[in-house]
Computed example of a mutant assay.
Amino acid sequence: MLKKSIEKAVSNNVLRSERDMERDQYRNPVATLDFFGVQPNMTVAELGPSSGWYTRILAPLTVENGKYIALNNSPTPGERYERGMQWRETFIEHKSGMFGHNASARFIGQTVPFAAPNSVDTVLIIRGMHGQIGRGDVNGLLAEVLETLKPGGVLGIVQHREREDFDTDPKETMRGYVKQSYIVDLVKKAGFELAATSEINANKKDPADWENGVWALQAGKPIAEKDQKFREIGESDRMTLKFVKPVK
């Protein structure tokens, strides 16, 4: 029954464009959200909604009985505050009302946590850990997520997967790929338990050795506009990791 709710939010959803849906074959949203245990009555926080690809699924999924929180990094020194609020302008105050009255946009990494302690069911970081590592305070972010999650709550991570045989610095994130072993170790040291891993979003066609990193795959383009070899490859090889906050 719960999986059917996710299926409905993915396939029977007027908010999603054709371009959104052509990526389903690579991003596997039904299987991914089901793996993380996302349910319609949960409080779900999404770090870095970007253009809103997952947002347009999570919004109708949680609008009636749950709550959606858009999380954004606090503006860095010199960065315009307005830029950091773009998610609120784009999504939360959207005239479609797709979020309901309980949705909110928050900054992460401030003196006050983005939510009350032990109040959030799930935090999702989809294709964004490389950016968090590159910002330099990923440990502070993970500490805040750990504090706000309920005991047993889930941190779900989908990330472009670096090859384990590559001698790369994980903090040099211009490639967009990060080793799975590095992320598992990083998140476990932050106090989480690794509950499960999945190959839902794996792609053996991606050699992950592009000189320009993951962006060489042209994921931002419609499939019809990609170079032929990148149409055949699809999108990046990705790890899918389910961590939980320990129940004491």
Rank of each mutant, 00 (worst) to 15 (best):
M129G: 00
E225V: 02
N13P: 00
V38M: 02
I183F: 03
E22F: 08
Y81M: 15
G213A: 04
L33Q: 01
M174D: 14
A115F: 09
R83Q: 12
K189M: 03
S104Y: 04
F91Q: 08
F243W: 12
R106A: 13
N12W: 06
K3W: 01
I125E: 10
G156L: 01
W53M: 03
P246L: 01
D237W: 05
I6N: 00
R135Q: 15
V120N: 03
I69L: 15
E64C: 01
N212C: 00
D34F: 06
N12R: 09
P113K: 14
P117D: 12
Y54N: 15
T240K: 05
L124M: 14
P246R: 07
P170Q: 11
I133K: 04
R83F: 14
N212Y: 05
S119R: 07
N13S: 02
H94T: 07
I233V: 10
G37W: 04
D209M: 11
E18F: 04
V63A: 08
P207R: 02
K229L: 05
D121V: 00
V10Y: 01
Q132G: 02
V10F: 01
K248A: 12
W53L: 08
R127T: 00
T148P: 07
L142V: 03
A105Y: 00
S198G: 06
Q39C: 04
Q228Y: 05
G128Q: 12
S104D: 15
L141H: 14
E232V: 00
E199S: 13
G97H: 05
K204S: 13
Q132A: 15
G213T: 01
I57Y: 04
Y177A: 12
V247S: 12
M85I: 04
E89H: 14
D185Y: 08
G234A: 07
Y177I: 10
T90L: 14
E89W: 04
W215H: 12
E162Y: 01
F230K: 10
A143I: 01
W210I: 05
N102T: 12
W210N: 02
I133F: 05
R23C: 03
P117L: 02
N201T: 12
Y54D: 07
L33V: 09
G213Q: 07
I57K: 12
V30S: 06
H94R: 10
E7N: 01
K95Q: 13
F230P: 01
D227Y: 00
G152W: 06
K242P: 05
R231P: 04
F91T: 04
L155M: 10
K171P: 00
